[in-house]
Nucleic acid binder design. Structure first.
Lengths: 227, 227
DNA sequence: ACCTGAACACCGTTCAAGT
DNA sequence: ACCTGAACACCGTTCAAGT
């Protein structure tokens, strides 16, 4: 505020500024998200963290969406794929993999939402796709159905995480309450089915609902022939 | 640039500035979205359109998410619910309602994505929920399953629209291509199922895939008991 | 009450110019 | 090649002050 000259401190004064690399950028982005949330992982904020200007990042990352996708891909390494080679009913094991996937998304709320927009395509995501396909195959689901089903399964998992985490630790909270109030306040004359079902529309724990959703979509995939 | 005084033109010079109302704000927001896209429907841009400052809007709308939700609710009036009282298989009619819903979202790409975040709760959305529940009821789906199924059905429809429209007329286009390339470039040793299924992972028209998805999720909802 | 000027605290992205 | 200063063109939201 008193001086207009840029702080003339040399690189030597700093903790050790690493040269920019794609890996270093992503690693710093992950750390930043873990400490401040995805909404703070902006090109400008990240550049500041890396002790450079935002323009420098564009040498390695095309845009903000790609940056967020890279973070997600990194986190996907934590998904537990071990049920693929486990014991027991294939449906339960598939549900377990999907639950682990949503679990990862849950721990980093805003990320799920970004996963719906910028689809990942890295190693970890491919391993997840392979795992889902392997379990559908083991269950005798025809390839044609598995090919399309894997998409729905991952989409439903992602969307559920995005929705749940939008409330949770997130922000407004108002949307869901508003919907609950609206559904409750409805008259039986114009909305007989909503009125008849009532509070069961919101019943169950998130885990319980999620488990049912996975079972339902797995069953649907297995039971619905193409054309 | 030459003058620093605000343009001193009086209200009389303008087309006829209407008093601010919630309805007027939302109507202007819809028009703005139709002409410039949702990404331009910001508080500042909308205020400019309404010939006022952004702060004035906060008297009527809590934040940008709520504004976008109001736009969606408005558009939901165009969903065709007539199949509810139609002829033929209840599953086909339910799929028709869901297809009409995604159709509305498709025509306004960015909106689908916003629907996943800020859930609507207005009249038109309630009418859609009631329609889905009515068809599930007609199909003899137990209330407990219908209560949770309506959520999945609408979520899957919304997420599919968000995804499809993310490519379509939207922006980067790169995500999907990157995923396709990644899935094709995979080796059969480490990813036998992906390799075995191959191009069928991306086969089919968007309409064809969507139709299958709806059938699969409807079937799953009807066939999967709770607990 | 209702409205708003002005400010605070940010954004993404580009590009000419430097090393 | 790789990097970056500086600019362009925006954002959401708040709040003291006005009418």
């Amino acid at each position: 505020m008193t001086s207009r000259t840029p702080t003339p401190r040399s690189r030597r004064d700093r903790p050790a500024k690493a040269a920019l690399t794609y890996e270093g950028i992503v690693a710093t982005a992950v750390r930043l998200m873990e400490s401040e949330g995805l909404q703070r992982v902006t090109m400008r904020r990240l550049a500041q963290e890396l002790d450079t200007g935002p323009a420098s990042l564009y040498v390695y990352v095309a845009n903000t969406a790609e940056l967020h996708a890279a973070i997600l891909e990194e986190l996907l390494g934590a998904v537990d794929l071990s049920p693929v080679r486990g014991q027991g009913d294939w449906r339960d094991r598939l549900a377990a993999v999907l639950t682990s996937y949503t679990g990862v998304l849950f721990t980093h709320p805003s990320l799920a939402h970004s996963a719906l927009v910028a689809r990942p395509s890295g190693r970890n995501y491919l391993a997840l796709v392979e795992a889902v396909l392997a379990l559908l195959h083991e269950g005798g689901v025809p390839d044609a159905q598995a090919a399309w089903g894997v998409d729905v399964l991952l989409q439903v998992a992602t969307a559920t995480a995005a929705e749940q985490s939008a409330r949770g630790s997130g922000a407004p909270e108002g949307d869901h309450d508003a919907l609950v109030a609206a559904l409750r306040g409805v008259g039986a004359e114009h909305h007989p089915r909503i009125a008849a079902i009532g509070d069961d529309l919101f019943s169950g724990s998130p885990e319980g609902r999620l488990a049912w959703i996975f079972r339902a979509v797995i069953n649907g995939t297995a039971a619905t022939p193409r054309t």
